[in-house]
Design a protein around this nucleic acid. Structure first.
Length: 312
DNA sequence: ACACTGCCCTGAAGGC
DNA sequence: TGCCTTCAGGGCAGTG
């Protein structure tokens, strides 16, 4: 289940191999991997072949390979290959001509001036992930579009997604004011990528546990102090997971070399139903919530309403 | 305009 | 043993 740390591990693993590399060949094995690409697979292959990759960027759970403009290579990039790993997508770096991966959907054969011939394989069991060629459009705040991408542009398909909490241009103020207006449960709001990006079910549960906030607390009921604590814990859990190479449960998430991360050993709430809370010892509870699971400690994460709401 | 539900998909795991 | 159901859940179209 790739969230920000897992996607960043993929991006940073890909970056040295793809930056400056020429896409020599494109093979689409399954068109479902192009659901977000406008137009047929043949067009995807034709438009990418011969292009050079300028950089590998990421915002939240989306990543993209910016393409050097054809002709004037000093001009700013106007197009990118946007990728989302969905539930089970993998981007793997393989030697040229490597045997097909299980669930391989798309292969890019690349030629790098230093590293030579390589293959980038997009494999995806559940086919929620996709690649697409997309236009790069200016960022409204004129800050760089994402991590690893210094230009003030972002793929159109990513432009409605909020910056992620590790982005230097992330606005804490904007988040506080959005939360103050939302009646929805804080967990639901954390999963809304237009509010804050990069957080999925695992890290939402972990950050709420660390901040001692009940997942069903209405967002607007959180005090400023609680919101600040939550934001700090979101950043802490994302950074820790990143340092450990991401979380893996079922070998669906792996880095570009096919290796799993170690963060699963560090989880305090997610997936620990019935096991003691590391803080207080009470068993972690699992509840079904918006077609997902929420895991929390019923003692440490009690619902607290401020006076104005309790009166109603 | 916002809040929320349902759907897409495959394979592993559990129940009977 | 084997079939059937359930579960995993990100993002977005569609509904209210």
């Amino acid at each position: 289940m790739p969230e920000l740390p897992e996607v960043e591990v993929v991006r940073s693993g890909l970056a040295p191999a793809v930056t400056g590399a020429m896409i020599a060949g494109v093979t689409v094995l399954d068109e479902r991997a192009l659901t977000r690409h406008p137009g047929p697979a043949a067009g995807f292959e034709a438009r990418l072949t011969g292009r050079t990759v300028q950089a590998a960027g990421r915002r939240g759970k989306f990543l993209w390979l910016a393409l050097e403009p054809e002709g004037d290579t000093s001009a700013p990039a106007t197009e990118a290959v946007v990728g989302h790993l969905g539930m089970s997508g993998q981007l793997l770096l393989r030697p040229a001509g490597a045997a097909p991966e299980r669930h391989e959907r798309i292969r890019l054969d690349i030629h790098h001036p230093v590293h030579g011939e390589l293959a980038i394989v997009f494999a995806d069991q559940r086919t929620f992930g996709s690649l697409a060629i997309d236009e790069l459009i200016p960022t409204p705040d004129a800050a760089p579009g994402g991590h690893g991408w210094g230009e003030a542009s972002v793929p159109r398909q990513v432009s409605h997604i909020a910056r992620d909490p590790l982005d230097p241009a992330f606005s804490d103020t904007r988040l506080r004011s959005l939360l103050a207006r939302k009646d929805s449960a804080i967990k639901r709001v954390l999963l809304d990528q237009t509010v804050v990006s990069g957080v999925g079910n695992i890290y939402a549960d972990e950050a709420l546990w660390a901040a001692r906030i009940h997942p069903e607390t209405p967002a607007k009921a959180l005090s400023t102090r609680a919101v600040n604590r939550l934001l700090a814990e979101i950043r802490a859990v994302l950074e820790k997971a990143l340092a450990e190479g991401g979380t893996s449960f079922d070998a669906q998430y792996v880095n570009v070399n096919g290796q799993a991360g170690y963060f699963a050993h560090s989880l305090n709430a997610y997936g620990r139903t019935g096991q003691p809370c590391p803080r207080c010892g009470r068993p972690i509870v699992r509840v079904s919530f918006m077609n997902r699971s929420s895991h929390y400690c019923p003692r440490c994460q009690r619902m607290r309403m401020p006076r104005p709401l309790r009166a109603a």
